[in-house]
Design a protein around this nucleic acid. Structure first.
Length: 900
RNA sequence: GGGCGAUUAGCUCAGCUGGUUCAGAGCAUCUGGUUUACACCCAGAGGGUCGGCGGUUCGAAUCCGUCAUCGCCCACCA
C-alpha cells in the first residue's frame, strides 16, 4: 500500500470528520444501552473559540469518545447561550458604530437587530468545535433562547412564583451604569484600585457663624466626595468619647447646606478615618441599612447612566467621575477640605462592561434561595455529586451556606422577558406606577394572564380596558438573568421542563460528567444542582471536573487585550487537531492551570508523526506466510500483551479518577516506548527481509488495539491509520469500535522483561564506552547462578543486542567488560581491549554502594523494635533486600578478585 | 478580616491508608549516535536535605504543631 511519507493533518481531519457526520456516529437515540451524557457548557452564541474552550472541549470529547467505545450510548449535547448582557452590549456597540442609539429604537426594532446579529455570528463557535474533532450530537444543538428552552424558562419562572419563591422587592442592587441594568452579586468583580481618601469638614449647625475658620466642624472621611449631595446623616460610634458633645446636633452638608442629623451606630469603626461616617442611603449598601434603622430619607443623586440627577441639586447631567474632580475644587474653595490621602480600596466592577458598579436602590425580581438549596448542599457534601479536584467542595459549601436571594431581573431587552403582567386601567401606564394599586399576575402568556386577572379580580371585568371599563395588561419590560436559563440546561436540552416525563429526559438524565471552569461554579454549577433537585429530584450530573485557566508562560491569563492568546484555529492548522489536543493535555492536572506554550502542540504533533512513522514501518514490510515465527517475536508479542493489559488497567484507573493527563501520559509512553521502541524493534525483520505471517498478523491486531487506545485523545490520526491497517467494511469506524480491555497480566513476565531491558541497556553502554558500532556483533556470557536471570528472553537479547553468541557460564570470563543486572553478571569479552583499571574502579564503586546499602538494611533488621513492631511483610522485604545485597556483594567481590 | 489549597529536579507536576512504586514522570539541559520507519529520531548522563523549625513513631515527602512564601474563594470598613 502506498502511504505518503508525511502525514497531512488538514486533509485527513476534514475527510474523517465528514465521514463521521455522514454516518451519524455521534448521534444518539435512547435505546437499551447504558447512557453516557455530557451537556456542553454553552458558549456565548456570538463568541469565538478561545484556548479555554479548547481545553474544556478536548476533555469532554475524550470522555465522550471513550464512553462510546466502552459500549455506552454516548450523547454529548452541544449548544449556545444567548448571553443576555454580553450580546446586548455587542449589539448596542455595533449600532452605535452605525450611528444608532439603542434608546432611539423600540424594543422590537432592537430585538430585530439582535436576532440579525445572532444569526450572522451565531454558531460560528460550534463550527470551530468541529475542527477540534468534537463528537457532539449535532442534531441536538440547542440554544438557550430557542423555543423549547424559552418555554422552559418561562414555565419555571411561573412555577417558582406560584410556589412563593419569586418575589419583587426594592433592594439595593449592583447597578451597571453602562448597560443600565441591575447585576447579581456574582457578576460584580472587586478590584483593588489606587484612590484617595478625602477628609471633608461639615459645619455643625448652630455653631458660631462667621468664616470657616474658628467655626465648629466635624470631619468625615470618604472615597466618594460626589455622593455628599445624597447625604442624609452623619454617623458616629455611640462609644466614641470624642463625639459625646455632638449628641443630638445637626450638621450642614457642604455646598448645599442641607441640615442633617448626627446619629450614632455601632457599625462605625472608631479607628478608621476620623471615626465619623457620612450616610448616603441611596448609594451605599451599609448606609442603606443604617438609613432603614434610623428612618432616614434616601436621596438618589444619580441617573441610570451614572450622571447626576435633578435630586443632586448640583452638576446635574454630569458624569459621576467628572463630578468627583469638580466637587473637590468647589469644596476646596469653600474651605471644606481637611486633607486628601492616597488610599487603596476595593471597587466593584461589572463583569461584562467593566465599569464601576453603582449601588442603587431599585425594584427587582428575586428568587428566594433559602429552602431550595438544601439538597444541593447535602448531595455535594456527601459525595453523591463528586467534584474534581475535591477542594472545590469547600468553596462550594461556603458559598451555599452564605447564599443570598438571587436577583434575576435585568434591565435589558435581549433575553427571556419576564412573564409578569401588570394590571392597569389605562393603556399607557408606565411600568412601576400603579403596580401597587392594581397588582400583577404571573403567567406564561398574555392569554393566561388575562384569565388569571379575571379569576383573581372579578370586579375588573373581562373586557379589554378603555371606555367600557376593564383593564389593560403591561408585561414587565425586563428580562431574566442569562443564568436563569442556563441553570436548567441539563434538563431543558431534553425538554424535561415542559415535558417532564418524556422518553429522552428519562433516559439521558441525570447526565454523567460536567466539564467546566471553576469561575462559574456559583453562576452555573451550583444553580444547576439546585434546579436539578427542584425539578427532577435528582442531581444533574454525577461528576464535575474543573479545568484550570489557560495561561501563558509567564502565568498571565490569556486575554485578548494582552494579545498573548494564540488563535486556536491557527494552531489546529499548524499542528493538526490531534497535535493540539495532545499538547493541551500533556500537562494540565484537574483544577490546575495550564501554562500554554507553542512547544506543547509541537510535541503533540511530533507524537502524531511518531505514530505515523510506526505505521509506515509496519506497512512497508513484505510478508512471507511460509516463514516460521522466530522465538524472539513470539516472546516479544506475548510480553506486549501482558504489558498492554497492565497499562490499560492503569489508564482505566486514571480515567475513573479523572486524571486525564496521566491517562494521556500512559498512552504517550506506551506508544513511544513499549510499542515503537521495544515491540517493533524486537519483531522488525532484518533489512529487506520479509516478516513471517504469524508475527505480522499478531502485530496488526496489536496495532489495532493501540490505535483504539489512542483514539479518544487523537481521533483523526487513529482513524486514518485504523482504516489503512486492515480491510474495513463500509460504514465502519474506529469511533464505534471498542476500548481495549485489560485481561489481567502476568507480573512476573513483565518484571523479567524489565531485567532484559536493563541488560540490553548494559550492552548499549558497553558499545558506547568502547566505541563499538551497532552493526558489529558482540558475544555475551551470562553467569548462571541461583538468582538466575530468566532465560525466556534470551532470543530477544540476541536480537536486540546484535549478538553473535550467547553463552551460559559458571566461571568468570577474563578480559571482558561486565555489568550486573540484579545479581546476575553479564560478560562481554573484549579481546584484550579491556581497561582493567577502569573496570576495577567501576566494580569497586558498585561494591561500595552495595555495602553501604547492606549496612543500612542490616542496621534496620538489628533494631528489635523494628522487627517486633513493623508488619511481617515489611520485615520480609527487608530480609530479601539483605539477601539480594549479600549476593550482589559476593558476585562483585569475586569479579574483582578475578580481574586482579 | 474569614476560609480553602499549595510549597518535591531548571520548568510543569505525580507520589493513595507512614515501610521497594520512595525520591519519580514529561519537558528542558549535557554527552554520544544518521546510507537501512522516524533528528518530529535513537542511546545514555547529570540534576532534589521533598519550603524552614519542632513533634509523634522502630521508621516521615507522607501524620501533628508552628513559621515563612505563594495562589484561590468569600466579606459592606467609609
Amino acid at each position: 500500500m502506498d502511504i505518503p511519507s508525511k502525514y497531512n493533518p488538514a486533509e485527513v481531519e476534514n475527510k474523517w470528520y465528514q465521514y463521521w457526520m455522514e454516518n451519524k456516529f455521534f448521534h444518539s437515540e435512547p435505546d437499551e444501552r447504558e447512557p453516557y451524557t455530557i451537556v456542553i457548557p454553552p458558549p456565548n452564541v456570538t463568541g469565538v473559540l478561545h484556548m479555554g474552550h479548547m481545553l474544556n472541549n478536548t476533555i469532554q470529547d475524550i470522555l465522550t469518545r471513550r464512553a462510546r467505545m466502552l459500549g455506552k450510548n454516548a450523547c454529548w449535547v452541544p449548544g449556545t447561550d444567548h448571553a443576555s448582557i454580553a450580546t446586548e452590549a455587542r449589539v448596542v456597540n455595533k449600532l452605535k458604530n452605525e450611528g444608532i442609539s439603542k434608546f432611539d429604537l423600540t424594543r422590537d426594532e432592537f430585538l430585530n437587530h439582535a436576532w440579525e446579529w445572532t444569526h450572522k455570528h451565531g454558531g460560528i463557535i460550534l463550527e470551530q468545535l468541529k475542527k477540534l474533532g468534537a463528537s457532539c450530537d449535532w442534531d441536538r444543538t440547542a440554544f438557550t433562547m430557542d423555543e423549547i428552552r424559552s418555554e422552559s424558562v418561562i414555565k419555571t419562572f411561573v412555577d417558582l412564583h406560584d410556589k412563593g419563591l419569586i418575589y419583587r422587592g426594592v433592594r439595593m442592587v449592583n447597578w451597571d451604569p453602562a448597560a443600565k441594568t441591575a447585576l447579581s452579586d456574582e457578576e460584580v468583580i472587586f478590584k483593588e484600585v489606587q484612590s484617595k481618601l478625602y477628609y471633608l469638614k461639615y459645619r455643625i449647625e448652630s455653631s458660631p457663624s462667621g468664616g470657616v475658620e474658628g467655626a465648629s466642624f466635624i470631619t468625615i472621611a470618604t472615597t466618594r466626595p460626589e455622593t455628599i449631595l445624597g447625604d442624609t446623616a452623619v454617623c458616629v460610634n455611640p462609644n466614641d468619647e470624642r463625639f459625646y458633645h455632638l449628641k443630638g446636633k445637626r450638621v450642614l452638608v457642604p455646598l448645599i447646606n442641607r441640615s442633617i442629623p448626627i446619629i450614632e451606630d455601632e457599625y462605625v469603626d472608631m479607628e478608621f478615618g476620623t471615626g465619623c461616617l457620612k450616610i448616603t442611603p441611596s448609594h451605599d449598601v451599609n448606609d442603606y441599612e443604617i438609613g432603614l434603622r434610623f428612618n432616614l430619607p434616601s436621596i438618589d443623586i444619580f441617573n441610570e447612566d451614572g450622571t447626576m440627577s435633578e435630586a443632586a441639586g448640583l452638576f446635574i447631567g454630569e458624569d459621576r467621575f467628572v463630578v468627583r474632580e469638580k466637587i473637590m475644587i468647589e469644596l476646596e474653595a469653600a474651605g471644606n477640605v481637611a486633607k486628601v490621602e492616597d488610599y487603596t480600596n476595593k471597587v466593584g466592577f461589572s463583569e461584562r462592561t467593566h465599569v464601576p458598579i453603582e449601588p442603587k436602590l431599585s425594584a427587582q425580581w428575586f428568587l428566594k434561595m433559602g429552602s431550595i438549596i438544601q439538597p444541593a448542599i447535602d448531595n455535594v457534601l456527601n459525595d453523591t455529586i463528586q467534584f474534581y479536584p475535591p477542594k472545590f467542595k469547600n468553596i462550594y459549601r461556603h458559598w451555599m451556606e452564605n447564599i443570598k436571594d438571587w436577583c434575576i431581573s435585568r434591565q435589558l431587552w435581549w433575553g427571556h422577558r419576564i412573564p409578569v403582567w401588570y394590571i392597569s386601567p389605562s393603556p399607557a401606564l408606565p411600568q412601576g406606577e400603579g403596580e401597587s394599586n392594581y397588582g400583577f399576575v404571573v403567567a406564561a402568556t398574555e392569554e393566561e394572564a388575562r384569565k388569571l386577572v379575571i379569576e383573581k379580580f372579578p370586579s375588573l371585568g373581562g373586557v379589554r380596558g378603555g371606555s367600557g371599563g376593564g383593564f389593560f395588561l403591561h408585561q414587565d419590560e425586563d428580562v431574566l438573568d442569562t443564568w436563569f436559563s442556563s441553570w436548567l440546561w441539563p434538563i431543558s436540552v431534553f425538554d424535561g421542563i415542559s415535558n417532564p416525563d418524556n422518553k429522552e429526559i428519562n433516559y439521558y438524565y441525570p447526565t454523567n460528567d460536567l466539564v467546566t471552569g471553576p469561575d462559574i461554579i456559583f453562576f452555573w454549577v451550583a444553580r444547576m444542582i439546585i434546579s436539578g433537585y427542584e425539578y427532577r429530584d435528582q442531581f444533574p450530573f454525577k461528576n464535575v471536573y474543573f479545568t484550570g485557566m489557560v495561561r501563558d508562560k509567564q502565568r498571565r491569563k490569556m486575554s485578548k487585550s494582552l494579545g498573548n492568546s494564540p488563535d486556536p484555529l491557527d494552531l489546529i492548522e499548524t499542528y493538526g487537531a490531534d497535535g493540539v489536543r495532545v499538547g493541551m493535555l500533556l500537562c494540565s492536572p484537574a483544577g490546575g492551570d495550564l501554562m500554554f506554550d507553542e512547544s506543547l502542540p509541537q510535541q503533540g504533533a511530533g507524537f502524531v508523526t511518531k505514530i505515523w512513522n510506526s505505521f509506515r514501518l509496519v506497512n512497508g514490510w513484505e510478508v512471507d506466510k511460509k516463514l516460521p515465527q522466530p522465538e524472539h517475536s513470539r516472546i516479544a508479542i506475548s510480553w506486549f500483551h501482558e504489558k498492554f493489559s497492565q497499562i490499560v488497567e492503569q489508564t482505566d484507573d486514571h480515567f475513573d479518577k479523572f486524571r486525564i493527563s496521566d491517562a494521556l501520559m500512559n498512552v504517550y509512553t506506551t506508544v513511544r516506548d513499549e510499542f515503537s521502541g521495544w515491540l517493533l524493534e524486537m519483531v522488525k525483520p532484518v533489512y529487506q527481509q520479509p516478516i513471517d505471517g504469524k508475527t505480522y498478523e499478531e502485530l496488526i491486531d496489536i496495532f489495532d488495539e493501540v490505535l483504539r487506545f489512542l483514539h479518544p485523545f487523537m481521533p483523526f490520526v487513529s482513524e486514518e491509520i485504523w482504516q489503512l491497517l486492515k480491510e474495513r467494511k463500509q460504514g465502519h469506524s474506529i469511533t464505534i469500535s471498542s476500548w481495549p480491555k485489560s485481561t489481567g497480566y502476568d507480573e512476573t513476565l513483565i518484571a523479567q522483561f524489565e531485567d532484559v531491558k536493563e541488560a540490553i541497556a548494559g550492552l548499549r553502554t558497553i558499545r558506547t564506552k568502547n566505541n563499538i558500532p551497532n552493526k558489529d556483533q558482540l558475544e555475551l556470557s551470562i553467569m548462571v547462578g541461583d538468582k538466575g536471570f530468566a532465560p525466556e528472553f534470551n532470543s530477544v537479547l540476541v536480537k536486540m543486542g546484535n549478538l553473535s553468541a550467547l553463552n551460559l557460564i559458571t566461571e568468570e570470563v577474563k578480559a571482558a567488560a561486565s555489568f550486573l543486572v540484579k545479581s546476575t553478571t553479564f560478560f562481554v569479552p573484549m579481546g584484550g581491549t579491556i581497561d582493567v583499571a577502569e573496570e576495577l574502579k567501576k566494580l569497586q564503586a558498585e561494591l561500595d554502594y552495595a555495602k553501604g546499602f547492606l549496612n543500612s538494611v542490616v542496621k534496620k533488621l538489628c533494631n528489635e523494635r523494628f522487627v517486633s513492631s513493623a508488619p511481617e511483610a515489611v520485615v520480609a522485604i527487608e530480609r530479601a533486600k539483605q539477601a539480594d545485597a549479600e549476593a550482589k556483594i559476593k558476585v562483585l567481590e569475586e569479579q574483582i578478585v578475578g580481574l586482579r
